[in-house]
C-alpha cells in the first residue's frame, strides 16, 4: 500500500505548528498504525530529518499512552486505541491526516505528544478509597453482588487516554471523571467518601479548564473501552445529591 500522510509538526509548546506531508511507500496491511509511523520515522532518520514524536508504550491497547487524532477522529476510524488500529482499515492511495489531541487542558509538548497530567490531578483530588496498607478486612468480608461488581468493572476499564476529551466539541472530561466516580459510587468500599469524592473531582475537572458536557455522546462513541454515557448520568446524580447533602458531613469537619 502507498499512503500519503499529513502530519502535525510542532517543535515545542511555545512554537507554532503546521502540517507536513509525507509519502509512506511501503505499507503492509498487517502493520499497526504505529508501526507504519515507526517505518516512516526510520526513513526520516536515514534522510537526516527529525522524526515525528508520538506517545505510545504497551502497544496492546491498555496503557492509554497512545493518542493521535486520525482523519478527524480520536484513535482513527475504529473504536480501538491507535496501537490496535491496523493499516488494513485504510485503502491504498489514501491520504491520512494525523493531529494531536486538541484541548486547552492538553497542551501540545511536541508534534503529536500532549500533556495529559490534568487527568492525574483530577484523580489525585479524590479518585481513591482512603485506606492505608494493612489492617483491612478479609476480601470475602465485603460481599459484592456480581451485577454490581460487573458494572463497577465496566466503569473501571477506562484507560485514561483522553479520547473522550479529544472527541468532544467542548473538550469535556465528563466521561473520564464519571468512570472513576461511578466505580466507587457503585462499590461498598467507596461509600464513606462518596459525596466528597464527586465534589472534589468535579471541582478539579473545572479548575483544569475542561469544558462542559455537550450531551451529544461523542465521547462514548469514540471511547476505545466502551465506557458508557450512563456514567455521566450517574455522576450528575451523585453531584446533585452531594451538593444538597454533603454539608451535613462537612459541618463536622471536612471528612477527608
Amino acid at each position: 500500500m502507498k499512503i500519503t500522510l499529513k502530519v502535525w509538526r510542532q517543535k515545542n509548546n511555545t512554537s507554532k505548528g503546521a502540517f507536513k506531508v509525507y509519502q509512506a511507500e511501503h505499507v503492509s496491511e498487517d502493520m499497526s498504525f504505529l508501526e507504519m509511523l515507526d517505518v516512516l520515522n526510520n526513513e526520516l532518520v536515514v534522510k537526516g530529518e527529525d522524526p515525528v514524536a508520538f506517545d505510545h508504550d504497551c502497544r496492546e491497547g491498555i496503557c492509554g499512552m497512545c493518542s493521535l487524532y486520525i482523519n478527524g477522529r480520536p484513535h482513527g476510524p475504529q473504536q480501538t486505541t491507535t496501537c490496535q488500529l491496523h493499516m488494513r482499515t485504510f485503502k491504498d492511495g489514501e491520504t491520512i491526516t494525523i493531529e494531536p489531541w486538541r484541548a486547552k487542558a492538553f497542551p501540545v509538548l511536541k508534534d503529536l505528544v500532549v500533556d495529559r497530567t490534568a487527568f492525574d490531578r483530577i484523580q489525585q483530588a479524590g479518585g481513591y478509597v482512603s485506606i492505608n496498607t494493612g489492617g483491612v478486612p478479609d476480601g470475602n468480608a465485603i460481599p459484592i453482588p456480581k451485577k454490581i461488581a460487573d458494572e463497577a468493572m465496566d466503569a473501571a476499564q477506562c484507560i485514561g487516554c483522553g479520547a473522550c476529551v479529544a472527541a468532544c466539541k467542548n473538550a469535556s472530561a465528563m466521561l473520564f471523571v464519571s468512570a472513576k466516580v461511578s466505580q466507587f459510587a457503585l462499590l461498598p468500599q467507596g461509600q464513606a467518601e462518596r459525596k466528597e469524592r464527586v465534589e472534589k473531582m468535579v471541582a478539579q475537572m473545572d479548575a483544569e479548564d475542561f469544558g462542559a458536557c455537550t450531551n451529544t455522546g461523542a465521547c462514548e462513541a469514540e471511547c476505545p473501552k466502551g465506557i458508557s454515557l450512563t456514567n455521566i448520568a450517574r455522576m450528575n446524580r451523585e453531584y446533585f445529591v452531594a451538593s444538597l447533602t454533603s454539608y451535613e458531613v462537612q459541618a463536622k469537619g471536612d471528612g477527608a
Binding site: V129, V136, P145, K146, A149, A152, Q183
Partner: peptide, 22 residues
C-alpha cells in the same frame, strides 16, 4: 493473602460469584 484483602479494600473490582464472594 494480604494482597487480595488490600486490593479489595481499595475498590479493585475483582470477578465475583453470584453470592457476592470472590
Amino acid at each position: 493473602v494480604n494482597i487480595i484483602d488490600q486490593c479489595v479494600a481499595q475498590g479493585v473490582p475483582f470477578a465475583r460469584e453470584y453470592g457476592g464472594t470472590l
